[in-house]
Simulated scan of single mutants.
Amino acid sequence: MPCKVLHVSEAFGGGIVSSLYSFADSTPEIDHHLLVCERQDQPLSKDLSARFSSISGMRRGFVGAVIDIRRKVEEVEPDFVHLHSSFAGVYGRMAGIDPSRLVYSPHGFSFHRRSANPALRGIYFVAEKMLSSRSAAFAGVSLKEVELAQRMNPRTRSVFIPNTTDFDHGPIRHFENDGHAHVVSMGRLCPQKDPGFLLQILKRLPAGVRDKFTFTWVGGGDEQMTAALKAAGVHVTGWVNHAEAHAYLAECDLYLHVAAWEGFPMTVIEAAALGRPIIVRNISAFSGFDLPADALVDSPAAAAERLGAWVDSPDARSGTYDMIGNIRDICSKDRQRAALSDLYRAGLA
Rank of each mutant, 00 (worst) to 15 (best):
E270Q: 07
V297G: 02
A293T: 14
A295I: 07
C252K: 01
A259K: 01
I278C: 10
I269L: 05
F264T: 06
E305M: 11
L296E: 11
I269W: 09
G308C: 09
R276T: 14
I278G: 09
A285D: 00
V280S: 14
A250P: 00
A259I: 03
A273V: 13
P265Q: 12
A271Y: 10
E244Y: 09
D322W: 12
G319I: 08
A302L: 02
A272E: 09
A245H: 08
V280Q: 11
G319N: 10
W310L: 09
E305F: 01
R306I: 03
S313T: 12
M266K: 02
Y255W: 01
A250Y: 04
S318T: 15
A272K: 04
S287Q: 13
E251V: 05
P292V: 11
F289N: 15
A285K: 11
A259S: 14
S299V: 04
A273T: 05
Y248V: 02
D290V: 00
I283F: 09
A285Q: 03
V311Q: 14
P292C: 13
A295F: 00
A245N: 01
A309M: 09
A259L: 00
E244T: 15
H246T: 12
Y321T: 10
N282I: 02
A247V: 07
L291H: 02
H257V: 02
V280N: 09
A316K: 01
L274P: 05
L254R: 00
D298P: 07
E262K: 05
P292L: 09
S287I: 03
I269Q: 09
A301N: 08
D294K: 13
A304T: 13
R306C: 12
G288L: 08
A285S: 15
E262S: 13
P277L: 04
H246L: 12
A245T: 07
D294M: 08
L256W: 04
T267S: 15
A316V: 06
D290Q: 14
R317S: 12
N282A: 12
L296C: 04
A250V: 00
Y321K: 02
A243Y: 08
V311M: 01
D315E: 15
P314D: 14
Y248H: 15
V280D: 00
D294P: 05
R306E: 08
D322T: 15
E244I: 07
H257A: 10
A271R: 02
M266Y: 08
E251Y: 03
D298C: 05
L254T: 01
D298S: 11
H246Q: 14
L256R: 04
F264D: 04
E262N: 03
D290N: 14
A272P: 12
D290L: 06
G288W: 01
D298V: 01
L307V: 07
L307M: 12
A260W: 00
F286K: 02
V258W: 03
A260Y: 02
R306P: 06
A304H: 11
S287M: 00
V297R: 01
G319A: 13
I269C: 12
W261S: 09
V280R: 03
A250S: 15
A260G: 03
A293Q: 14
A316L: 06
H257T: 12
A250K: 10
C252S: 11
P300L: 07
A302S: 10
R281C: 09
W261K: 07
L256V: 01
S284I: 00
S287A: 14
E251P: 06
